[in-house]
Write a protein that binds this DNA or RNA. Structure first.
Length: 557
DNA sequence: GCCGTTTTCGGCCCGACTGTTTTCAGTCG
């Protein structure tokens, strides 16, 4: 029986919600499924555990109808209403929604009126001028669709690290429990290098009984069967569709195999063609007269030379992060109370947390107006008293198209910490976009610029900013730039973060958590900072609380 | 389909922007 993860269940519910809205089902029904998908995605424990306790329909937004559907999905692997819809309408219709600018309405129209059922069909319709011929759609819409599809074509089709890494860890844990005694398994490849996207999951198994491995692998619940098996390597695939490559080696050469399977092509090109045979990575590197190189740095960017010279930098690790500034709660679009978020931060060993819900302009996220912001402050102070954690009263303030902020200065001034962020108008031309952000950086009340580029990994390119000017301004005003750790964003990315550091900027790593599980993303942000070569001294949330308070004080004047 | 100090029916997240338009529909977050 397939063991579905919460994420897979959420994706199936979401597929149904989207397909249902295209085919004209009750909009509220499809929104209910969408909401249920969001709830399932943010759960702290497996859906199956809730099912066992009979607690599924206690969840907000999940009543008896959707609970039944989820139970059937978990039991049989199929969602009956989705199957029913797919018998009447091609599932490829869902692909149309991936095109930015194409929503449910447009997808429905090109399907009904032009017979478009998939992306190639949409491209053909746009290229032949049939889209502009539809009433209400014009040449600009058609041109936008063509441009968006070109951007879509450039996408790699790779999987997000945030999907692949947790899955890889579960497979490793399952394998570890079933491998013959004396065997072990490790993650390698781009997942171990913490690349933002990966094509597959690579594992290396060390064992003396090679012949036992295929059968062991074939019985893993997360995997759906062996695709290929040759020369001591196996290719299988997960239920989520991610290929898994498993190399099987003797323990005596485990270190060698791990280095081969982990290094990027550029890193490996700088190593000798024939590596020394050894059971551990440390021994291989040592026999090459090099220090051991952390996997996320094996990119061929000078780390090999540094390892030979013994000058590898000391980089920050997850444990260096003492707290976060950017987190959401039920007050806007988060799914946990302030107290739950603060307690979760405390459990993770944090010394402080910034509560920064959206401002009013982000209406869909239930953004706060001045009155609610003031009311929220009481609850923030209560949470601070109850936990002993320093809780910063903050706000993720929307940047308008002209660079004005969503709140007046006197409201910003009263906050402990101000985060500014841009969610719309990211397609403005470079000089307009840059001036807009410079105006925000120049505001002395603004302490942090959240997800500066606005990119979404594999889904949306960031804004076309003049980064040299942005970094120079941020460095001059000591405004911190965020490395947003959410695997969907990773913004700044490691290239921009490195340039920001070179320009003298302060950085901050935040999960932008919308639930207590959201804090799990920290390691992705830390990996970005490490690749950028960040010293903890330049990451504001690695500082002791007194230094942070002092930084905030100097900024308010 | 979900939900209820509006409680078993009748509502259901909202404002800005864009492109199409002469007053609005669709998308996005």
């Amino acid at each position: 029986m397939p063991l579905l993860t919460n994420r897979e269940i959420a994706e199936t519910l979401e597929r149904y919600a989207n397909l249902a809205s295209i085919t004209g089902e009750n909009a509220f029904r499809s929104r209910a499924f969408q909401r249920a998908a969001d709830v399932v995605r943010d759960l702290h424990e497996p859906v199956i555990a809730l099912m066992d306790r009979g607690d599924l329909r206690r969840l907000p937004g999940i009543g008896s109808g959707i609970a039944d559907a989820i139970e059937t999905l978990v039991r049989t692997g199929a969602l009956p209403p989705l199957d029913a819809l797919q018998r009447t309408v091609p599932a490829t219709l869902l692909d149309l929604l991936q095109v930015p600018g194409v929503g449910v309405k447009t997808a429905t129209r090109v399907y009904r009126e032009l017979g478009v059922v998939d992306l190639p069909g949409l491209l053909a319709a746009a290229e032949s001028g049939r889209i502009r011929a539809l009433p209400g759609l014009g040449p600009k819409t058609e041109a936008n669709i063509l441009a968006a599809m070109e951007a879509l074509r450039r996408r790699t089709g790779r999987f997000l690290l945030g999907t692949a890494l947790p899955l890889a860890r579960r497979i490793v844990a399952d394998l570890q429990g079933t491998l013959p005694a004396g065997s072990s398994v490790a993650i390698s490849g781009s997942v171990r290098r913490m690349e933002e996207t990966v094509a597959d999951i690579d594992l290396v198994v060390s064992t003396r009984v090679h012949e036992a491995i295929p059968a062991t692998v074939a019985h893993l619940p997360l995997l759906s069967g062996i695709v290929r098996h040759e020369n001591g390597s196996l290719r299988v695939t997960t239920h989520a569709g991610i290929p898994v490559d498993i190399v099987v080696v003797d323990p005596s050469v485990f270190g060698t195999a791990l280095i081969r399977a982990t290094g990027s092509a550029d890193h490996l090109a700088l190593l000798p063609e024939v590596l020394p045979s050894a059971p551990t990575e440390e021994e291989v590197y040592s026999r090459l007269d090099m220090e051991w190189i952390a996997p996320d740095l094996r990119l061929g960017l000078g780390e090999v030379m540094q390892a030979k010279a013994g000058t590898l930098p000391t980089l920050l690790s997850v444990g260096d992060v003492r707290g976060e500034f950017h987190a959401h709660t039920l007050w806007s679009d988060g799914t946990a109370t302030i107290l739950d978020m603060v307690r979760s931060a405390a459990e993770r060993g944090y010394a402080f947390l910034g509560v920064s819900d959206h401002s009013r302009a982000l209406g869909v996220a239930n953004g706060l107006d001045a009155a609610r912001l003031a009311a929220q402050r009481q609850e923030i102070e209560k949470a601070q008293r109850a936990t002993g954690l320093r809780v910063f009263a903050s706000c993720e303030v929307e940047v308008h198209r002209d660079g004005l902020l969503d709140f007046d200065d006197h409201i910003l001034e009263a906050l402990d910490l101000v985060i500014a962020s841009t969610h719309s108008g990211l397609r403005q031309p470079r000089d307009v976009l840059t001036e807009r952000l410079l105006r925000v950086i120049a505001n002395p009340h603004v302490d942090i610029i959240a997800h500066p580029s606005g990119r979404l990994v594999e889904r949306r390119e960031g804004g076309d900013f003049d980064w040299n000017r942005v970094f120079a301004a941020a460095a001059a005003t000591r405004t911190a730039l965020e490395i947003n750790a959410s695997p969907e964003r990773l913004d700044l990315n490691h290239d921009l973060a490195r340039r920001a550091l070179e320009a003298g900027c302060l950085l901050t790593i935040n999960c932008d958590a919308h639930s207590t599980v959201g804090f799990d993303a920290l390691e992705y942000g830390v990996a970005v900072a490490r690749k950028a070569g960040a010293d903890p001294d330049r990451i504001v949330n690695c500082w002791p609380i007194e230094r942070i308070e002092a930084w905030l004080q100097t900024r308010q004047t």
